[in-house]
Design a protein around this nucleic acid. Sequence first.
DNA 1: ATAGCGATTATGTATATACATATTGAAACG
DNA 2: CGTTTCAATATGTATATACATAATCGCTAT
Lengths: 248, 248
Amino acid sequence: MSLVETDDVESSESVSLHQRILSDIREKILSGGWAPGHRIPFEHELTAHYNCSRMTVNKALSQLAKAGLIERRRRSGSFVRQPQSQAAVLELHDIRIEVEALGLPYRYERLKRLKRRSSAEDRSLLGLSAPGPALALESLHFAGERPFALEQRLINLSAVAEAGEEEFLDIAPGPWLIGRVPWSEAEHRIRAMAADENIADALDIEAGAPCLVVERRTWSAEHPVTHVRFIYPAESHTLVARFTPSQG
Amino acid sequence: MSLVETDDVESSESVSLHQRILSDIREKILSGGWAPGHRIPFEHELTAHYNCSRMTVNKALSQLAKAGLIERRRRSGSFVRQPQSQAAVLELHDIRIEVEALGLPYRYERLKRLKRRSSAEDRSLLGLSAPGPALALESLHFAGERPFALEQRLINLSAVAEAGEEEFLDIAPGPWLIGRVPWSEAEHRIRAMAADENIADALDIEAGAPCLVVERRTWSAEHPVTHVRFIYPAESHTLVARFTPSQG
DNA sequence: ATAGCGATTATGTATATACATATTGAAACG
DNA sequence: CGTTTCAATATGTATATACATAATCGCTAT
């Protein structure tokens, strides 16, 4: 059971000792044999168990630490960490570019524009605590003749006053905001949803048809800037994110 | 410009040499100074440049290779692999963690397991050109009594032979693969879909109900490792990605 | 009791060395 | 001319050793 109880370590054929130590410990952790918080054997114990040098053990443990599986504390030992979520890089999409990449003509159409004092729902979406002026926009993005995405957007006019003077008839709010307001933080929510009647009508699909919904909230230096909801008919859109792992 | 032209390496204060070599080379690559395909100085050259032992250089280069930034070839040297286009950081949640975060008991159940020679569709999903052994898995993740997600997975056994010996009855393929196969690149496709009969049956929802589909392809050092498709009932799942812009 | 201090201990980083392994390039050979 | 063989070379892995650093334990003095 325990790695340090027995001494009968048979020599493995082709894999390196380093790899063997790694996978042994990983196995123990991932199988649940060593729960989060468990102290794994000290380097000198593993050294004795595997009959190898401390450097070899150290390298394996350092790698596990870098991978986030364990946490190492001087004088205390190494401990199994709570499982961590991995980070990956998501490509931010510009609808115009996406449509044109499909070889289709892009067209933008503003449906509604309403300046108002933020409602409770507006504040919830924007992440605001106090009421203030807001701009609500609804627009359609077309690929050729067909609606490609419905955009429902709120802009916090306290943060971006000049947006209140813009009609957004010829330019979509996304490109308008980009560059004008440097974002410091953003949050995406991605989900599937059945189209209600309004959405179905705007997108020219049937009510109840599946849609992909991408919501984004953006902050600039702690101030909420905008909340936007893109609604895509399921068949028109796939979000693609290609990435490489983050490194320590 | 070149790391090996000058010898004037000033002593750094607090960071370790290991870290300095790492960030120096990363800098060169990410800034574009060293384009993809460029041969990085040999270990013995870096050893001379940094006035340190080969082990230190080797550790840094091994780490860069594991991170996928460079590729190492015996007798030939180390080469820059791919440029990175970063946009935003997406947190990839482990389904178990997500379910438990909801305060619900998590349960995993393997439905099907089939070892086979990869079909044309398999190869297309995995991104393989030549046929080879593959493992097809279908599993259900439960939150309490209700199905939370359906997982359809393909594993390229040419890349991860040991997976062929695993039954995956007690451990889900995701956790099993994590750490065992360090991924160097991945691709997500996220879309909405109406549940067909099989899916509706497995997830205990109505046919035609909207689902969120997350597909992920993973590579390890250019080799396709796995393709997985998670299908979530729309009401059970929202993908959340929170991030700050990359510093360039 | 307790606050401070030093010894102990586990990890962090680096060294020099050794041999294995894969691959390249050139020499030797049929 | 093509093929085989072999030495050179860069990386891969492991060793023993050394000292630094941080945290804990236990002792001591107040």
